[in-house]
């Protein structure tokens, strides 16, 4: 495992759900790389498959779902070939996960210290006192006051923001190489969210932990991440450095997403909307998944576009990306055939 081996390498991941009503291709072609200490934002709307991607990496996709294709390499190791016991060993240890709703992810009838200490003891042989001290320090690290007392408390005695900090502390306990955070601040109010984002970023920089931050909120990603991966209908549609993508989105979907953020638009103008709705994962259109909502769609889009790299460090899955000077710069509303603005 050399210095150059990326912490996580995902290639063409496919995770399908085999339900009574058909096969839902929750993840159908996602590729990205996360290097040591990097923060990547995995962005998409609900149903885009971002959470499932996170679960696929950590190996917690439950029936009727299953990872059916692609490669997941963690520090060079092929996770899909790994034994169940190896995966268990990695979880909570080298790869940690933070869930969305901390009220339900912490067991309501167990004390905080129990839930923290067991995470340590599951992976290391230390005595109770040492484990307890580490737990206490972790709570302090995430900014929880009087950690010694708080250890003896139960989850329902904490506020939402505190509980999420506890979850982050648990994730950091065994100093993992990678943390997957699945919309951890969506359920919290904005001020708490800002605090937590700041602290997480600081901690990751300090410890060199790679982080995948799954969210639907572009604003969060803009301030936090180094890289971004945009997902749509289970597919990766654009990747690249955060600043590059946000300043100059190539994929029509990303373009539309950024265009619809109020701060990006001129005051007084109508906000752009992407017309139509996300297709159901059970009946995706053949070819490019975004085809039915894209005003740049053409004949070629009936075939699924491959991933290309039109610019250095930018991955994109599109036949008609926003390239070249004849395209409008990000922020301007695109015009459709009749010359009207918007849908």
């Amino acid at each position: 495992m050399g210095e150059d081996t990326p912490t996580l390498q995902v290639k063409d991941l496919q995770t399908h759900f085999f339900t009574k009503d058909g096969v839902a291709k929750a993840v159908d072609g996602v590729s990205f790389t996360v290097d040591r200490g990097q923060i990547m934002g995995l962005v998409g709307e609900s149903g885009s498959g971002k959470s499932v991607t996170g679960f696929s990496i950590i190996g917690l996709v439950d029936p009727p779902g299953r990872v059916v294709g692609g490669e997941i390499r963690f520090n060079g190791e092929d996770l899909r070939q790994a034994e169940a016991e190896r995966l268990r060993d990695l979880r909570g240890n080298r790869i940690a996960m933070i869930f969305q709703d901390p009220m339900m992810t912490l067991n309501p009838v167990l004390r905080i210290d129990t839930q923290m200490i067991e995470t340590i003891l599951a992976h290391e042989r230390v005595d109770q006192a040492t484990a307890r001290a580490r737990a206490r320090d972790a709570l302090g690290q995430v900014g929880i006051p009087s950690p010694e007392e708080r250890l003896k408390a139960y989850p329902h005695q904490f506020s939402g923001g505190m509980r999420q900090r506890v979850a982050i502390a648990i994730a950091l306990l065994n100093r993992p190489d990678l943390i997957i955070a699945d919309e951890p601040t969506t359920a919290l109010d904005v001020t708490i969210q800002a605090q937590i984002l700041h602290e997480v970023q600081k901690l990751c920089r300090q410890t060199g932990t790679a982080l995948i931050w799954i969210t639907h909120d572009l604003a969060v990603v803009a301030g936090l991440a180094d890289h971004i991966c945009v997902m749509y209908a289970g597919r990766m549609v654009e990747t690249g450095r955060v600043d590059d993508v946000i300043d100059r989105p190539l994929h029509p979907y990303t373009h539309g997403l950024i265009g619809s953020v109020p701060s990006q638009n001129r005051r007084g103008r109508r906000l752009t909307q992407i017309p139509g709705m996300t297709p159901s994962l059970l009946s995706l259109p053949v070819g490019c998944a975004f085809r039915s909502r894209c005003e740049r769609a053409g004949h070629a889009c009936h075939k699924e576009p491959p991933i290309t790299e039109p610019l250095a460090g930018r991955g994109i899955r599109c036949f008609h990306p926003h390239l070249g000077s004849t395209d409008e710069a990000a922020g301007e509303a695109p015009r459709d055939a009749s010359g009207e603005i918007g849908p």
Partner: peptide, 15 residues
């Protein structure tokens, strides 16, 4: 049969 994609525009058959 399990993995096959349903054709576009057709509702998947009800159980």
């Amino acid at each position: 049969r399990l993995v096959g994609t349903p054709e576009p525009g057709r509702e998947p058959a009800a159980g």
